[in-house]
Amino acid sequence: MNFLLTNDDGIDAEGLRALERAFAPLGKLYVIAPDQHLSGCSHTVTTDRPLDLVEHNKNQYSLTGTPADCVRVAIKHLQLPIDWVISGINHGGNLGVDVFMSGTVAAVREGVMHGIPGIAISHFRNGAVPFHWENAEKAVNRLGSELINKPIDRQSFWNINLPDSEHLKADTTYELAPLEPEPLPVSYEQRDGRLHYVWGNYVNRPRQPETDVGVCFGGKISLSLVNLQTKNASIP
């Protein structure tokens, strides 16, 4: 099985290295990741400037573009024989409606648009507690090997959020959970005549216990099936 690995934290991110170690036993790896940190870039694609594609090692590239660009280049330019797009392991959670702003998730969504299934993987961090990449690698290997052998609707993808390092073990259980609909509270403050985003208290964000935020914050791995299909709405 052939996997395209990418992320939005950049080609040198520790989470990407952990993802490589997790999926290496499962098949052949192709890595194309942004040459810089692009967290929160959502589904931005580059059409107004050239892109530089640099091969660092065999089947490992960096791109001066976004995560969605990386997937497009892999499919349309390099024409790689990809069976799954795997994005992450993100340095921080991508929970609830945050998936619509996440570059990590956008890479997988881009793959699904081209008929390739995918898994987006993130590691929630509680405050300044370091990430636990070794346990993340083991948990992702275990869960990834299960998911790639499950049938999945061609309009859907998996979104995984690992809990914080205090709760994450190699054998931490997962729970299927819908996306939390309540957004992260945001605010701004004015300084020197300009508006500055005020980073909210992520761990105190609104949540219901059965949603992905509630599950992940409760110490389990949250697993959400996200569908791209929209249903026709009747006009009153």
Rank of each mutant, 00 (worst) to 15 (best):
D35C: 10
A233L: 12
L29P: 02
W199C: 04
T64M: 05
K150A: 09
N159W: 00
K28E: 00
T211H: 09
H196T: 10
S165W: 09
R109P: 02
H56P: 05
A68Y: 05
N57G: 06
R109E: 12
W199V: 10
L19C: 07
G103D: 13
P130Y: 06
R207W: 01
D212Y: 05
P185Y: 05
Q60F: 02
V198F: 08
L5S: 01
D48N: 13
S62K: 07
V112K: 03
L195K: 15
A13Y: 03
R125W: 04
V45S: 06
D35M: 03
G103K: 08
C70G: 07
N141K: 06
G111N: 09
D8S: 11
G111D: 08
C216M: 15
H37I: 13
K58T: 12
P130C: 06
N141A: 04
G144T: 01
S102M: 08
E182Q: 14
G40I: 08
P151H: 11
I119R: 04
K231R: 15
V203H: 11
L143W: 05
E55W: 04
I82N: 02
M101F: 13
Y202F: 12
L26A: 05
K169R: 14
I82Q: 09
L29S: 02
V45G: 00
E175N: 12
T172G: 05
I221M: 07
S145Q: 14
T44Y: 12
L16F: 07
F157I: 09
D164V: 07
D48H: 13
V73T: 08
R191L: 15
A74T: 00
L63P: 03
F100E: 13
G118K: 02
E166N: 13
V31N: 03
T64L: 03
F3S: 02
L4D: 04
P206M: 07
P178V: 07
R49G: 01
G144E: 04
F23V: 00
K76V: 06
E137Y: 02
G10Y: 11
A33H: 02
N126A: 13
I160Y: 04
Y174R: 02
H37W: 12
I86T: 05
I32E: 04
T64P: 09
D52N: 05
L143I: 15
R142E: 06
K138Y: 06
E137G: 01
L184M: 14
S62C: 09
K138E: 09
G40M: 10
M1W: 04
T211M: 08
V186Y: 11
T47H: 11
R49Q: 12
Y188V: 13
L225V: 13
A74Y: 00
H56S: 01
E210K: 12
L51I: 10
V54E: 02
K231I: 11
L228M: 13
I89T: 08
